[in-house]
Design a protein around this nucleic acid. Sequence first.
DNA 1: ATACTTGCAAATGATTTGCCAGTGT
DNA 2: ACACTGGCAAATCATTTGCAAGTAT
Lengths: 137, 137
Amino acid sequence: VRACGLRLSASRRLVLEALFAAAGPVSAEAIADGLAGRLPPADLASTYRNLETLERIGLIRHVHLGHGPGRYALVGSPEREYVACERCDAFVALSAGELDAARAAVARASGYRARFTHFPIVGLCPGCAGREGHAHP
Amino acid sequence: VRACGLRLSASRRLVLEALFAAAGPVSAEAIADGLAGRLPPADLASTYRNLETLERIGLIRHVHLGHGPGRYALVGSPEREYVACERCDAFVALSAGELDAARAAVARASGYRARFTHFPIVGLCPGCAGREGHAHP
DNA sequence: ATACTTGCAAATGATTTGCCAGTGT
DNA sequence: ACACTGGCAAATCATTTGCAAGTAT
């Protein structure tokens, strides 16, 4: 952290603590609110600035799940890729490798090297797909 | 159109003409501007309302390509699915079926039924993937 | 005639920026 | 000390909403 010429200020440390404490990816607002009281609150604009800084040095990353705000998480091993439901905002986080077959199929069809870390695969979760097409959804 | 109890007003017709005239998916702002002068301009808020209405009755749909605004297109046959580059915003539109292998791989890994019509597959286009990892990008 | 539509202005949600005072190193 | 940071207010971007006036049917 300091190795990048950055200062380890109180609010910067708070952002990192929040991301350690969080179960999954969390929004900037949730972090600024101190994860519902579990941590001291911080200014929202500063939180966004800190998230951007920490992302630039590769400590964290953000993913866009559903229509809401972006969600941030520590970069860890194994790396996570996401599949999200466009109807109910449910999502699953898979480990690197589990989507390699899909990646290969995309490369074959389009030439693109797909990455599901920043923008997830979007579709219907088993529950919403089951309700699809029924008479009374 | 009228079959749904809707009126075919001037600005509604204009939105449809713009979508017929456009080569690919276009933003609401581009439509409201009359596609750079090719058509008369319209109010942006009304354009958004008309796009929403036309999408609700299934005539059009929108897709989120890159970081910019959503882009609208007529629903046609063959149906289109998209693969977009997260670095340079280039994208390719594939016909329904071309991504079925990828869809099957996703279903195997996650149980989700992926659809790439509203949120595209995101990754690196061949050009950006080639530059990735080089000494001086 | 009447309900659907428009246009304009103002609100919204997420995120960014300007600016000046505060503080790690 | 000095540049990096924090907090607060105001700006931005895409999109939505309120409302009075207009118009397709």
